[in-house]
Nucleic acid binder design. Structure first.
Lengths: 207, 207
DNA sequence: GTCTATATCGGGATAGAC
DNA sequence: GTCTATCCCGATATAGAC
């Protein structure tokens, strides 16, 4: 208790951000009230407004922080000079690791995705992601490597989908297929890094 | 206008259900108010309560209806005596057709998925879906057909994910990769039925 | 900076007239 | 069955004391 208070006094503003991040990620924007955040932070509502002016501004600050934590790497990997197989492995490893450490990100982002797609798209562009260029890069790989696919856009959607979906639908899948055993499902996700890579590569390998 | 009124008088109860379904699917549970539904239906809030007692009951009635519209087929296909390849093709065709006709279903379900997983899981079981049995069926296929995979559970998650994800993340993907062109993206999804089947089958074919 | 008190609004829900 | 009027609550946000 003493320690908590000490830490809080040291920097209330940051403390609020940490707490709010947790609460927002667990309950979504509509599902959390300023009161909930204030309680969790051990302060009152007014102080939230003092630091962040409105619920909206507080939320967006958090959202952009979460976002920038995992998006930028995407472009870097795909614009690099690795082979496509290496890219696939690097991507799944990187992404699923981020999500394994922060399993609520996919659900959190998905929830906002349908409400503010234009804002989201802008954030992605600001992070330096350019789908056109990524598509071109993949097309180049097709000519140089022993692989084939009909449309790189499907390939990209497949890759992202396979990484994100098991986190986004986790509450359901874990319940239905793993008797709601948290650890068992985490292990399943851990295996899945290799599983998805292999699956993707098998699917596009000529044979 | 006259026609609308006539139809409404004929059966207000059903009319409410139709309107509420649309509004709920477009805005999610938290994003819609009883006032919005009443306005859209051309009646007032009290009447909503008269017919459905509460927002919650109205919502669940709609949700279960939407759900039963696409879930039950899943089990039937996978418990049938088709080859695994046939099952994959039947599944993607069937599912993506349902979603193409009703593109908001995946987002709608996803939104509830994180809030009421236990309710959702129960609905699925009530629809006769048993993941255990489906897994067993897939394992049987492995011995009889010229395919291989490490873990049928990953296979199942992959299949569902590849079908659902492009609809769930549509607002973002359409914007980023298709200049927000609705028609172009619909066409992309249409192609995708074959694309996903081929992709899945390639990935598990021995070679 | 942090608190209490309060303003203001919109939500779901109910009572009661017709 | 459908309406108007109203209740009650919880939400965001602000005013102002300390």
């Amino acid at each position: 208790m003493v320690k908590v208070m000490a830490e809080r006094s040291r920097n209330t503003e940051e403390h609020i951000l940490e707490v709010a991040r947790k609460v927002f990620m667990e309950n979504g924007y509509d599902g959390t009230s300023m009161q909930m955040i204030a309680n969790e932070a051990g302060i009152n509502k007014s102080l939230l407004h003092y630091y962040y002016r409105s619920k909206d501004r507080l939320f967006h600050q958090i959202f952009e922080k979460v976002f920038s934590q995992f998006v930028p790497h995407l472009g870097v990997i795909f614009m690099s000079e690795m082979t496509l197989e290496e890219k696939v492995r690097a991507f799944t490893d990187r992404y699923m690791d981020v999500f394994l450490e922060n399993p609520l990100i996919p659900i959190f982002v998905m929830q906002e995705l349908s409400k503010n797609p234009q804002n989201l798209a802008q954030l992605i562009r600001d992070a330096g992601i350019n789908p056109e260029l990524m598509i071109n890069k993949i097309t180049e790989s097709l000519q140089q490597e022993d692989i084939e696919m009909k449309d790189p856009r499907h390939f990209l959607v497949n890759l992202i989908g396979l990484c994100v979906f098991p986190f986004a639908a986790r509450p359901l899948i874990q319940r239905m297929m793993f008797a709601n055993d948290e650890e068992a499902y985490t292990q399943f996700l851990e295996q899945r890094k290799k599983e998805v890579s292999d699956f993707m590569i098998n699917a596009i390998r000529k044979c």
